[in-house]
């Protein structure tokens, strides 16, 4: 068991707890002052955040292996939520079971640090296997939709999210100030911070809609969020990453803008199906996918950005 809660991460977690505590205190104050307003959603949301952060602390304290298993389990939950959400065919049932099997296999490559298979297993082998297994199922009506739906789900929830776990074991040419866990903390913190920042900028100045898909998202919120996240990325970089300020600036802008795209992608899925939330596992947030939406696309981009410049 290796404790990957190094000093910078301890401090970071402490900061996160401080932010959450402040948020909880201000909500309680507001709740007492504005008695006629309904705060239950906000309270539930903050409470759930508390549990998430508590669990993250425990997992980090248990070490790299525990963290890989935990992220793998989150992938499984996200995939299950996706398969519950999207319509499938009766003949797809057994094939879905094989798709689930990709979760432990993909995280095993992370476990042993085999980058080569980690990066091609789902795009090459899972694609091939699912396409063939669905042919063996013998139903051609709806084949394209099924093969596409299943593989896209695997890409988003297993392949992309497993990049978060690979950050923990990725070799680098330079020494990392807080290890692989520092990179993980950096990308997690910035994407989640960016969600909140875009929300606040949007609430304060939002006027011009970005897309029909998410009427609540404005250009003002998006740009304000990108700027704030980029500034924070530059400030935090020396403690968690090998980035000098130009790299940190690029990483911050990348995380913020791609985070937005991930967010609206999951919104588009929900809109297509006619549902508001992807699930109800996280009170106040919705489902697992509602919480992870911005990470699904930002995680692989962040890893490949870091790996291109500093990968060993």
């Amino acid at each position: 068991m290796d404790n990957i809660l190094t000093d910078p991460i301890w401090l970071g977690m402490f900061g996160v707890y401080a932010v959450l505590g402040t948020a909880a205190a201000s909500i309680l104050l507001l709740k007492n002052r504005l008695k006629d307003k309904d705060f239950s959603e906000l309270v539930a949301r903050t409470k759930t955040w508390g549990y998430i952060i508590l669990m993250a602390t425990v997992v980090l304290a248990l070490g790299t292996k525990a963290a890989i298993i935990a992220i793998g389990f989150i992938s499984f939950l996200a995939l299950k939520e996706y398969f519950t959400l999207v319509p499938t065919r009766k003949v797809d049932r057994r094939v879905l079971l094989w798709a689930y099997l990709c979760v432990p296999i993909q995280y095993y490559w992370v476990f042993i640090g085999w980058y080569g298979l980690f990066i091609i297993f789902i795009p090459v082998y899972a694609l091939l296997f699912i396409a063939f297994r669905l042919i063996l199922a013998g139903e051609t009506s709806g084949y394209i939709k099924s093969v596409g739906t299943m593989h896209w789900g695997l890409m988003l929830t297993v392949f992309n999210l497993s990049h978060l776990a690979f950050l923990l074991v990725m070799p680098t040419t330079v020494e990392l100030p807080a290890g692989g866990a520092g990179l993980l903390f950096y990308v997690l913190f910035l994407t989640q911070f960016n969600d909140v920042a875009q929300y606040f900028w949007g609430k304060l100045f939002g006027k011009h809609q970005v897309t029909e898909i998410s009427p609540g998202k404005s250009w003002e919120g998006l740009i304000g969020g990108i700027c704030t996240t980029t500034v924070l990325a530059i400030i935090l970089a020396p403690f968690y990453t090998p980035f000098t300020w130009p790299y940190a600036m690029a990483a911050g802008a990348l995380i913020a803008s791609v985070g937005f795209i991930g967010d609206v992608t999951i919104s588009a899925v929900k809109r297509d199906l006619g549902t508001k939330d992807s699930g109800s596992l996280l009170p106040g947030h919705g489902g697992v996918l509602d919480r992870l939406d911005s990470l699904t696309l930002a995680a692989p981009l962040f890893l490949h950005f870091t790996r291109y410049f500093f990968g060993g």
Partner: peptide
């Protein structure tokens, strides 16, 4: 009253 992902009917064209 709410969204449920029903099975896709097989062979709707038939």
């Amino acid at each position: 009253g709410q969204y449920f992902a029903d099975y896709i009917e097989e062979n709707p064209l038939v």
